[in-house]
Design a protein around this nucleic acid. Structure first.
Lengths: 410, 410
DNA sequence: CTGTTAGCGCCTTCAT
DNA sequence: ATGAAGGCGCTAACAG
C-alpha cells in the first residue's frame, strides 16, 4: 500500500539498511549515496512507518503530558512550557521529542487510560500535571502503574502535585482514615499517610516564607521526579495578608474536595488562622464552602452560599483565580462592591487576573518555569533535585481586590 | 525485557493467537479460556506493545489535534471539546480513540513536523484548529501533505480555518500577488487565490447576517472536512454595532498579519465601513495597527500606537479578547475611561470576557460546539456537511465596554 | 562505507 | 474454538 523503505532502497539502488542509516543520520554514509537516497525519498514522498520503526528500535520519541483540564490556562501554560523544551536537537536528526498533551478531565479512569496508552507506545517520558486525586484506591493504582512505567525506562515527572507516597506501606487503620476525611478541615487532621510530623504545631514560630520541607523525606528511589508547588505557603501568606488588613470574617470557597491542591491551600489558610487569629478556627467550617470544581460557577454559587451563612463577610478566598472571578460576579450581583464591601483573592495569577475587575489579589505560581523544568527533567536534560523533589516558590500578588474592611455595610 | 504476548500465552496455557483474540475481543473465544487468559494478563501486568500491534494491524487509535497556542483558552476549549467526543465505545473494547493535542506555537515548521509524526504513527484522524498561515509556499506544502494523509486513510478536519484551496492551480502571476499583499488592507484586494468573485462589491445590499457562501465552491472531493468560523460576518456586525452607536473614529489592532483569521476579521470590519460609513475607508490604514500576536502585549502596544496616530479615537476593535484586555490596560494607563472615553471590543467571547473590567463587548464563537463537531467528524460519526464545509455562526455580545462616544474628552 | 541477516511483538489467514 | 506459521516495515548487529 504505502511506500516502504524497500521501495526507496530499490529506487536509489541501495539496500534498505543504507536508507535507514541515511534517514536516522546516526551512521556514516557516503555523500553521494546520501543525496541519491534523499532524492528517492523526495520523489516517493516516503514517510517512515512509526510503529515499525518503534518496534525495531524499541524506543519512541513520544512524551505524554497529562492535564486535568486543557481549557484551563493553568494547564495550558504548563503544557506549553513543557513542550517548549522538547524542540532541541537539529530537526533532521530525529532528536526531537514530541510532546502530546492528554486531557484527563480530572477523571482518574481517564488518567489511567492515557497512562496505559502511553505505556503501550513505550513513551519516552510522561509528565503529570496539576493536583492529583486523593483517593486511596486510585492513588495506589496510579503509583504502581507509574513505578512500572519508570521501571520500563519511561521517565516520570510530577508537576504541581505532591510526590508519590512510598510503595511498601500497606493501608493501615482504615477507620482512622475515614474519620480523618470528615474532620480534615478542622485543622487537626493527621499528617499525610506515612509521613507524620508534629512540627506543624510550632509553625507560629516560623517566618512566613516558603516551606520546602514538607516533602523532603519522600525520595522513594524510584527515579520519579516531582516539582511541587508551594500551595500551602502561598495560601498561608495570602491569609496573613487579609488578617493584616484587619479582616476577621473570611470566607473560603475551595476546589473539589478530593484534590491535593485543594487540601494544601486550605491547610495553608488554616495554618495562618491558627497563627494569627486562632479564635477564628472554631467557626472555620462555617466559613468554608466546598466548591465542586475549579470553575467560575463554583465561585459564583459558593459566594452566594457564603453570604447566606455569613451576612457580615468581609473577605473571600478562592480556590483559584477562575473561582475568584465567579465570586466577584456573585458579589457584584448582590450589590456589593469589591474591595470596599468585600475583599476577594484568587490563586495562581493567571494572565487574566491582572485585567480583572478590580485587579485580582492572588498568589503567583511560576507555571511556565515549572513546566519548562518539568520538560527538561523529562528529557533527562537536567539533573533531578536532591531527594527527587523540588518545591517552587509562590509569591503574593497584592492588588486591587483586597483592602481593609470598611466596618460598615448596607 | 517487558512481558509479551507469548509470556501471557505460556502462563495461561494457550497459544499467543488465543491471547490476541481475547484481548482484541473481535473473535469468539470460549468463556473459560477467556477468563484464564485475563487472569494471566492481570498477574503479569501485561500491556500490549503498541508499535508491534500497530505494525501488524496497520491501524492506530491516535487522533491528533493541532493547535496554535495551547496556553490560549481559545484552543483549549476547542481541544477539550474534540477530546470529549473520543470516549465512545466500551472502555475494554479498545474502541476508544486517543486524542493528543499538539502545540505548534503557530509555527508552520512545527505544524509540518507534527503532521509528519502523526503520519508516521498512521493516525486515525487529525484535526487542525485555528487560523492557518497565509504563506503560499507553506499553504501548498500543507495542502499536499494533508491530501496525502487523507489518501492514506487518515481523516482530516479543519476547524476554525478556511478550507484548503483546490490543488491543481499553479501559482499564477506572482507579481500581482505581491502587490496585493501591500494593498490588501484598503478593502480592494483581490479575492483569494483561485476563487475570484465580484459579488463582494454589492455587499451593501445584503442583510448583515452570517455569510456562509464564501467557501461553497471549494469541495475538492478529497474528503477533507472543514468547520469554518464566520469571522467576517461577526466582525462586520461588531463594526456595525459601533457605527450605530455613533462612532466615527474607530481603531483596529489586528492579529498577526499572515493569518487567515486576521484577514477575515479585518475584511468584515472593512465591509461594514464600506456599507455604513464609506467616508472612513480612505483613512482606514491609519486606523489599523497590525499586532504581532494574539496576545495582551500586542493589544497594549497597539493601543498606544493608535492613540499616538489618532488622538481623538473613540473606539478600538481588537483581534481577539486577549488583545482587547491589553488595549483596555493601555487605555486605563493613559487615564482614559472605558467606555466613557473609548469603547473597546474583542472577539471570541472567551470565558474571562464577561468578567473583564468593564465587561467586554465581543463576538461569540461557539467554540465548544465547533470542536465537538470536529471530533465527531474526525471519528466518522457524523456525516460531513454538503460540500465538505460548514460555517458556524457567530453572535454579537454587546456588553459594558462599548457605549456611544461622549463627544468631549480631556 | 555498504549489504546481509535476523529478529522486534503482534495479528491473521489457514489448518486442525 | 484453538494452534501454527508467515509477515507487517524497520533497525541493528555482523560481515565484507
Amino acid at each position: 500500500m504505502a511506500v516502504t523503505l524497500a521501495d526507496v532502497a530499490t529506487r536509489a539502488g541501495v539496500s534498505a539498511a543504507t536508507v535507514s542509516r541515511v534517514l536516522s543520520g546516526n551512521y556514516p554514509v557516503a555523500g553521494a549515496t546520501r543525496t541519491r537516497v534523499m532524492r528517492a525519498v523526495e520523489e516517493l514522498q516516503y514517510v517512515v512507518n512509526g510503529p515499525a520503526s518503534a518496534l525495531a528500535a524499541a524506543t519512541s520519541d513520544l512524551v505524554g503530558v497529562l492535564v486535568n483540564d486543557i481549557a484551563d490556562p493553568f494547564f495550558g501554560i504548563i503544557a506549553s512550557a513543557v513542550q517548549s523544551e522538547m524542540g532541541t536537537g537539529a530537526p533532521g536528526t530525529g532528536q526531537q521529542k514530541l510532546a502530546v498533551v492528554c486531557n484527563t478531565g480530572g477523571s482518574t479512569e481517564s488518567e489511567l487510560t492515557y497512562l496505559t496508552h502511553l505505556q503501550r507506545q513505550r513513551a519516552a517520558a510522561v509528565v503529570l500535571t496539576g493536583s492529583g486525586v486523593e483517593d486511596e484506591k486510585h492513588g495506589a493504582a496510579l503509583a504502581s502503574r507509574l513505578r512500572r512505567l519508570a521501571a520500563g525506562g519511561t521517565r516520570i515527572v510530577l508537576c504541581g502535585r505532591p510526590p508519590l507516597a512510598p510503595p511498601e506501606q500497606k493501608p493501615q487503620h482504615k477507620d482512622a482514615e475515614h474519620k480523618d476525611v470528615q474532620h480534615r478541615h478542622h485543622g487537626e487532621r493527621q499528617a499525610r499517610s506515612g509521613r507524620g510530623k508534629e512540627r506543624r504545631e510550632t509553625l507560629e514560630d516560623q517566618a512566613p516564607g516558603p516551606r520546602d520541607d514538607e516533602h523532603q523525606a519522600s525520595d522513594t528511589g524510584d527515579g520519579i521526579v516531582t516539582i511541587a508547588f508551594d500551595n500551602r505557603g502561598g495560601s498561608r501568606r495570602l491569609t496573613e495578608h487579609l488578617l493584616s488588613l484587619g479582616h476577621r470574617s473570611i470566607g473560603y470557597v475551595t476546589g473539589p474536595a478530593d484534590r491535593t491542591t485543594t487540601r494544601d491551600r486550605l491547610e495553608g489558610h488554616r495554618l495562618a488562622l491558627r497563627a494569627g487569629a486562632p479564635e477564628l478556627l472554631a467557626q472555620a467550617e462555617q466559613f468554608t464552602v466546598h466548591g465542586g470544581a475549579y470553575d467560575r460557577s463554583s465561585g459564583y454559587d459558593g459566594a452566594l452560599e457564603l453570604l447566606r451563612r455569613v451576612p457580615d463577610l468581609t473577605a473571600v478566598l478562592a480556590a483559584n483565580d477562575t473561582v475568584a472571578l465567579g465570586i466577584c460576579a456573585a458579589l457584584r450581583d448582590q450589590g456589593l462592591r469589591i474591595p470596599e464591601d468585600v475583599s476577594v483573592a484568587g490563586f495562581d495569577d493567571l494572565p487574566f487576573s491582572a485585567d480583572a475587575c478590580p485587579t485580582l489579589t492572588t498568589v503567583r505560581i511560576p507555571l511556565h518555569d515549572a513546566g519548562a523544568r518539568a520538560g527538561r527533567l523529562a528529557l533527562g536534560r537536567e539533573t533531578p533535585p536532591p531527594g527527587g523533589v523540588a518545591t517552587v516558590r509562590t509569591e503574593l500578588m497584592a492588588r486591587g481586590s483586597t483592602a481593609p474592611p470598611s466596618g460598615s455595610r448596607n
